[in-house]
Design a protein around this nucleic acid. Sequence first.
DNA 1: ATAGCCGGGTGGTGA
DNA 2: TCACCACCCGGCTAT
Lengths: 236, 236
Amino acid sequence: MVRVYVDERERTSGIPNILKAMGLTVIFKILSIADYVISENIAIERKRIDDFVSSVFDGRLFDQARRLCKAYDKPIFIVEGDLNYVKRITTKWSSILGALISLALDFNLPIIFTSDTRETAEVIKYIALREQKTSKTGKKTTIIAVSKKPRLTETHEWQEYIVQSLPYIGPKLAKRLLEYFGSVHKIFNASVSELAKVEGLGEKRAAEIVRIIKAQYMPHPGSKRLRKLTSFLEEK
Amino acid sequence: MVRVYVDERERTSGIPNILKAMGLTVIFKILSIADYVISENIAIERKRIDDFVSSVFDGRLFDQARRLCKAYDKPIFIVEGDLNYVKRITTKWSSILGALISLALDFNLPIIFTSDTRETAEVIKYIALREQKTSKTGKKTTIIAVSKKPRLTETHEWQEYIVQSLPYIGPKLAKRLLEYFGSVHKIFNASVSELAKVEGLGEKRAAEIVRIIKAQYMPHPGSKRLRKLTSFLEEK
DNA sequence: ATAGCCGGGTGGTGA
DNA sequence: TCACCACCCGGCTAT
């Protein structure tokens, strides 16, 4: 039985229904990062082409790509929609091309293009099936562990994820820190010297982390949005 | 000066001329495996879409992919032509989709789609340029032509990023929380009712956030007992 | 002898 | 996946 974990936000996309019709077991969860999780290591981020384009320009894309790669060994990007249409309407096509190349080369992030939800579902099914079948590739990284739940919404996953958001902290250090301190709260209240006691984290980086945590928030100076927010605060 | 080695067979494709017109130095060679070689490790195989399709069915594709990957650290596949057209005329589109997925997942082979020779040349140039720049100057040049602010180096960017890692918190709430509390540290020390004062965040979700922040870290629920490293902290 | 300094190797992060 | 860089550790020096 092939199981696919689907993020709640994808519920309305129509893809889960197609997957069900194809005979897959769909399980809805609140996934923090990806849209579809096939196994512990394999996750798919689906983006409609228009969203993809705007995420290139507002900078969200690389954030998301970074998060995806951080959290999963085998992340996959699906871009859904008509590329040619976008080529025609945008003057900044080369930026998008650049982004695609960067995703592929810097992040080693496989990108699949599909034309509609139906095809996206097909691709997801294909990937899920091939993951379950015997791995003729022999790669040790492809753990066929569909039986084991990703448990992305489990507390400790969230804790690790939060700690990973700190600069210089990846999966390894996040776990070490949590094991050492016992909770997110304690990490965020630790002093520089306490943090630096953890193997792999020195004074310099620890100091930077503490600096950012303690720093007064000073949002974009001169931003129009700021005005709104500050006035919002004023009325409080 | 950017140099590109081009296989003799590509001479007639028109791409070398476009590259020359773009200011690159084109050197023709008889390359056994790839079509374009940018550096010692980087090679590009260009395939017109019809050739790509037939190579899927006669089995040439995977042979070539294997050889490419063996010979170069960073092989890149460019598929040139109108995908939609092929989708329409072939009944075996899913085989092609499968081949694309396999290339991406099994061979870790980045695939770039271009619509014509002009665009192929653009991509080659882009890759050649970025290769020269990154290898010489280090990471300095993020070539993504987005005028915005791709760098996450600013303190407030990090603050927002960290706060966003909390469940239920997206970009908007992250900013609001930071505006309201003034620092990451204060947010991570806030009580449920304090958090819930922020517009858009209710008691229920606030409680969940606090729970995760304060929760004891239990990496393997139910298995081995976690070492009491927290007591070690106390003596400080 | 011990404490602090330096330089090479490495693991981990970030893109 | 790959490059880079802070971190770690072992050795050396000098008091």
